[in-house]
Nucleic acid binder design. Structure first.
Lengths: 144, 144
DNA sequence: CTGTATCCAAAGGGATACTG
DNA sequence: CAGTATCCCTTTGGATACAG
């Protein structure tokens, strides 16, 4: 794989801003980070209120200790959450969203709302598509 | 609205409504679909104007024929793009965003804008984080 | 309690070859 | 032109064990 930055469409009539659609455009880089299995879930939870590691673990159904830790480390590295270690044994760690993280959460708001209101429509479209496929298969198996 | 926003957990007792952050919430399902390597890029391109397969292939640096085809099929199945086959050899196929797809694009707008203006801040945060790590490593290697 | 390290299975995705 | 099929390497992420 190449770096993908090149891109020189210059197609007649297309208004594409050159690098806007490169494989490493900002949008792609963001999705590479928060498009994983747990990041947005964690961000939402922390946006709600600061939480300790074990609380997050309990709140998020199905997350493994490894992935929770790993994802939190990534979010911290990206400047989206902070990590505060409290005292000694038994150690307590509190995670909070940073202003940058809260900003991102705001930018994700519309997408989240869309998902909640429209993923039903997507599911319906999938059902129609799959039904069409099955019908076609039947027509081949049982031609008129 | 819904599940992701208005929960009121008082900190310690965590009042989180169980399934609100389940791994299969609408947001997670959406990200499972458009969080992949090419979906949003393709959607953005088609939102700009309808395009043929080969145009998309040329516009998107680094995409393989397999992944372009596969991603378009998914988007079509989800009701986000349409596929129109034009005539005979050499065959031509035009893809367009559907109203639902355009709606999603609108919902992604803020996220995209945030990415374009703030991913620099994220990169900076990463640099700081990594520098801290290296410094710590040096301090271990070369203690006082 | 909050992690890290290791092992392993499954999914993602690129290269290539082939088809209508 | 617009795909599909195959091979295969890489990445993701769960389970488990261990540690401060």
């Amino acid at each position: 794989m190449q770096d993908g930055t090149s891109l020189s469409p210059g197609y007649p009539g297309d208004t594409v801003r050159g690098d806007a659609y490169a494989a490493d455009c900002p949008t792609r880089r963001l999705l590479d980070r928060v498009g994983d299995k747990w990041s947005v879930l964690i961000l939402l939870l922390l946006g709600d209120s600061p939480r300790r590691f074990s609380e997050l673990k309990r709140c998020i159904a199905g997350v493994s200790q490894k992935m929770l830790s790993q994802t939190l480390r990534s979010l911290e590295r990206d400047g989206l959450v902070t990590r505060e270690v409290d005292g000694s044994v038994p150690i307590k760690v509190v995670y909070r969203v940073t202003p940058l993280g809260r900003e991102l959460l705001g930018a994700l708001r519309q997408m989240i709302d869309w998902a909640e209101t429209r993923m039903g429509a997507v599911a319906a479209a999938q059902a129609r598509y799959d039904a069409r496929g099955e019908t076609a298969a039947e027509m081949v198996a049982l031609p008129g």
